Amino acid sequence: MHVLIVEDNPDIIANLYGYLEPLGYTLDVARNGNAGVACATGFCHDAIVLDLSLPGMDGLEVCRTLRQEYRLATPILMLTARDTVHDKLTGFEVGADDYLVKPYSLPELDARLKALVRRSRNEHVHSVLIFGDLRLDAGTGQVTRGGQPLELTPTGYKILAALMRAAPTLMTRQAAEREVWGDSPPDSDALRTHIHTLRQVLDKPFPQPMLLTLPGTGYRLVVPGEA
């Protein structure tokens, strides 16, 4: 599981790394609100652990920005020392999915993160993803562009669904590999082959491409004419 931690307290960061990494988590850290927004929107994560009290942009504003400005659907677990009903309601109103009050139990944090990700992935199973004239119905598995059905390989389907969830932000090569192979990607350059195959179906029959490669970085979808 790939999790972004937005937290400025080095002791808490160290505790989270010490507990979660041995459980198989891959962790990124942002130490202030602005860095949290940049990291959350620049890379794909399964969940975000967001401290409420941050230097500069606080956690509420980070959450509000991610939900309202970037339409980011990544589950957000908010951490705070504030334990009033008003504070919790405010967190939920700006888009937090769950709430833990400090001091909290690390096993409970682990359990809540896993539950959030399970719910998020289950919602994706029944959702319809739309980006530009591209439509992916995760319930039926049907993908169309401009109303024209696209015949994707199972791996191409996984990659495209991840790209659509991230769109229009960048999906790194590492994130794309995790979507296909989990935490055990192959040593070969298999991803490039799958991207090539996906592009033949997604872009080749159409006047303008939607799948862009940022050399050495990753991939992202664009709406033709808006890139």
Rank of each mutant, 00 (worst) to 15 (best):
A176E: 06
G42M: 09
A176F: 03
D28G: 15
Y219R: 00
L170S: 08
V49E: 01
G216T: 07
G139E: 02
A14D: 12
L52Q: 10
R145F: 06
E69D: 13
D28W: 06
I13P: 06
L27H: 13
V101T: 15
V125E: 06
Q68W: 05
R135S: 11
A40R: 12
T41F: 02
T193D: 13
D137M: 15
V143E: 06
D8A: 07
D98M: 05
N32R: 15
T217V: 10
Q148N: 05
L79V: 12
V125I: 00
N122I: 07
P205N: 13
L23T: 02
V101S: 09
L191Q: 07
D203Q: 03
R199N: 00
R220W: 02
T213D: 07
D187F: 01
C63G: 07
R31P: 06
P22A: 05
I5S: 10
K88V: 05
L54F: 06
E123A: 14
A111F: 08
M1L: 15
E108G: 08
P22S: 07
L60D: 06
G59F: 11
D137K: 13
A30F: 11
I76C: 03
R220N: 00
Q68T: 13
D203P: 04
Y219L: 02
M57P: 09
P55N: 14
L50N: 01
E108Y: 04
D133A: 10
C63P: 07
V85M: 08
V201H: 14
L20A: 13
Q142L: 14
D28F: 04
V3C: 13
P103V: 09
E69Y: 05
D189W: 02
G147S: 11
P149E: 14
V117F: 14
Y25L: 09
A162T: 01
W181Y: 03
Y99E: 02
P207I: 02
L100F: 02
P215L: 00
D28P: 11
Y219E: 00
G147K: 14
I12A: 15
P107W: 12
H45E: 10
T217Q: 10
D187W: 02
T74V: 15
N122C: 04
P209T: 03
V201S: 08
E177C: 14
S184L: 04
F92Q: 02
L79R: 12
Y70V: 01
T155W: 02
T65L: 04
L66C: 11
H86R: 15
I195L: 01
G132P: 00
V143K: 08
R118C: 08
L134G: 01
H86Y: 07
E177G: 07
L150R: 05
V101R: 03
R165Q: 08
A47K: 01
R71T: 06
R135C: 12
R71Q: 08
L170V: 10
F131E: 00
A111K: 03
G91D: 04
P10A: 04
H124I: 05
G218V: 00
L72H: 05
R82A: 14
E108M: 13
D58S: 15
K114G: 08
I12W: 08
A166P: 03
L202K: 10
L163H: 03
G156P: 09
T84P: 13
L150K: 05
A14S: 08
M171E: 01
D97C: 05
S188M: 00
L52P: 00
E177A: 13
R82V: 13
A175C: 07
N34K: 14
V222L: 09
M164I: 05
R165I: 04
D183I: 09
P186W: 01
A227N: 09
C63S: 11
D203I: 04
V3G: 09
M164C: 01
